[in-house]
Design a protein around this nucleic acid. Structure first.
Length: 511
RNA sequence: GCUCCGGUGGUGUAGCCCGGUCAAGCAUAGGGGCCUCUCGAGCCCCAGACCCGGGUUCAAAUCCCGGCCGGAGCACCA
């Protein structure tokens, strides 16, 4: 019997491991090559982690099935939309998609086409007219309050049965500007007693008297969400329209619109929203914090806007990996930053240089060391490259937290410089003496900075949207050569991104 | 209240549609060990879950019924 066979008998049970890596569930009705998906953000703010899911889920499916992916701006509520947000969305989405191509091999890492919904408003007017002529839509001039109440009660108002000619004329007048905002809207005629209240003659066009960021005052009648998505998705060839699940009750409305217009149908897929443990994701909560100055801005590293995350040093690649692993689940997920951090760390760890930074510095005088002396520190544990630090005087900074608990006789090593023994500890100065035996193994190794040449720096530690900690101290001279945006690991502290050079300020990404 | 959707280890997910191969996979967090002139990293190991109750079946995480719990929506916003 060959030894391998024996071994098999001896240790049989080990089951084959299933293939690693996340495999996404198949998309209903999808076939390779015929899938078209889209992301449809409203340019009304800076995109957040929540938007990243809305971007990545349809993108990933589009690429899995070698289909098309569209970016469509849903800019049909001019009151809240601003030009700067179109660009912010383009910019942040691009970084994510490029990262998706690099990380997951989903190519091409960009959208295939950009559509701005507001340019299609004239087409939507035509369709509205068609609905009116078919008797499927009517102009209602009831006040909002009454409509709300009657919808709830399932009552039909007097406008519902107006003749087509009257509706046509009222519609014309809406377009012409005979009505003010709120005075008239076009409603789809469905069923005022439908169990799903959103289905009770939903409004499909309304008047908005606010300048549009692109078109100014060209339009005053705008389609309502349910109408514009349905029409746009159908007209642009979308096969699978993704939405976070709060839109679920609208599926029926949208399907009805499509059918009444005789347009092409498509799949509607819902996915769950994500919440970051304790951190507000929605603009509603973030905005007041920004406006009150509690946050530095929409790119504050304490909030999960994409720009905030990037500024904090979370790589777009990490965000992409994160959502790829989360999958398209319909369950609302509460995630903690630990997961994102863990992914980011794995990306950063192999390629980011190491530096020494001493927060809360305390002077340490070393007896018995000949200065000047050159310390050699490894730039990265896996590399053979070293950096030298010139120590001109026998005095270095070490961190207060390392000093605490030290007592005479304790031994530790100043990384790359010397192994030392404690002679005495005073509140603002530690007295050290060079150890006889310069051992490295078995002793605690700590970071330090030279008294002369040490670079003042600080590290911003995000704690919550409302709080942070700022650690000041000295770092090794090489910190002065870093460029804004560079990533590094501060030894025994964590990964940081250089936020700005004057004063030298790092942001702690995570440990 | 009404409509819809979900409930798999501490957390997030895979599996469920097409019952068996699930003594349930992966990740993260937790515990232990090893390695390392940093570490909360890496490597190895350990522990940890199918909401409850019925039913169908030789067989149920998977199908059916009931319950419980959770989420979303109920705007002339998206």
């Amino acid at each position: 019997m060959p030894p391998e066979a024996l071994k098999e008998i001896a240790t049989p049970p080990k089951r084959e491991r299933k293939p690693q890596g996340r495999v996404w569930p198949p998309l209903e009705g999808a076939e390779e090559g015929n899938v078209v998906t889209r992301v449809a953000p409203e340019p009304n703010g800076y995109p957040t982690l929540g938007h990243a899911k809305g971007l990545l889920v349809p993108f990933i499916y589009a690429r899995i099935y070698k289909g098309k992916f569209l970016l469509r701006f849903e800019d049909t509520n001019p009151r809240v939309e601003r030009l700067e947000f179109y660009d912010a969305i383009r910019g942040e989405f691009s970084r994510l998609l490029e990262a998706a191509e690099r990380e997951l091999g989903l190519s091409p890492g960009k959208w295939d086409e950009e559509i701005i919904e507001s340019y299609h408003i004239p087409k939507m007017y035509e369709l509205a007219e068609r609905l009116i002529k078919q008797g499927d839509a009517y102009v209602c001039t009831c006040p909002a309050e009454k409509v709300r109440q009657w919808r709830r009660e399932g009552r039909e108002c007097e406008h519902r049965d107006q003749p087509v000619e009257v509706n046509l004329e009222l519609w014309e007048r809406m377009l012409e500007g005979d009505f003010k905002e709120g005075e008239a809207h076009l409603r789809l005629k469905t069923d005022m007693r439908h169990p799903n209240i959103t289905m009770r003659d939903p409004g499909i066009f309304r008047i908005v008297e606010a300048p549009h960021p692109i078109h100014g005052d060209r339009f005053r009648v705008y389609p309502v969400y349910d109408f514009s998505v349905s029409v746009m998705d159908s007209l642009t060839g979308v096969t699978h329209a993704f939405r976070s699940k709060e839109f679920e009750p609208h599926v029926e409305v949208q399907r009805t619109i499509i059918r009444k217009l005789g347009l092409r149908e498509y799949h509607m897929v819902q996915f769950g929203r994500i919440t970051v443990e304790g951190i507000p994701l929605s603009k509603r909560y973030i905005r007041p914090l920004v406006e009150s100055g509690i946050l530095e801005g929409w790119d504050d590293p304490r909030i999960p806007t994409l720009r905030g995350l990037f500024r904090r040093g979370i790589l777009p690649e990490a965000i992409v990996r994160f959502f790829h692993e989360l999958g398209p689940s319909k369950v609302d997920a509460t995630v903690n930053m630990d997961m994102l951090a863990a992914i980011n760390r794995k990306l950063l760890d192999p390629k980011v240089p190491r530096y020494m930074f001493v927060p809360d510095p305390v002077r340490a005088v070393i007896e018995g060391i000949d200065t000047p002396v050159e310390a050699r520190v490894q730039i990265h544990p896996d590399s053979k490259e070293y950096r030298t630090i010139v120590v001109e005087e026998p005095i270095v900074y070490i961190s207060k937290s390392d000093v605490e608990g030290l007592k005479a006789g304790d031994e530790f090593r100043l990384r790359g410089l010397a192994t030392v023994r404690v002679r005495s500890v005073n509140p603002d100065e530690v007295s050290l003496i060079l150890s006889q035996e310069q051992k490295i193994k078995g002793v605690k190794i700590i970071q330090w900075a030279p008294l002369k040449g040490g670079v003042p720096a600080r590290v911003f530690i995000p704690l919550s949207p409302y709080s942070y900690e700022m650690l000041g101290g000295y770092g090794e001279p090489a910190l002065a050569e870093m460029r804004e945006g560079d990533m590094a690991q501060m030894l025994r502290m964590g990964f940081v991104r250089l936020d700005k050079r004057k004063p030298l300020t790092f942001i702690l990404s995570h440990r």
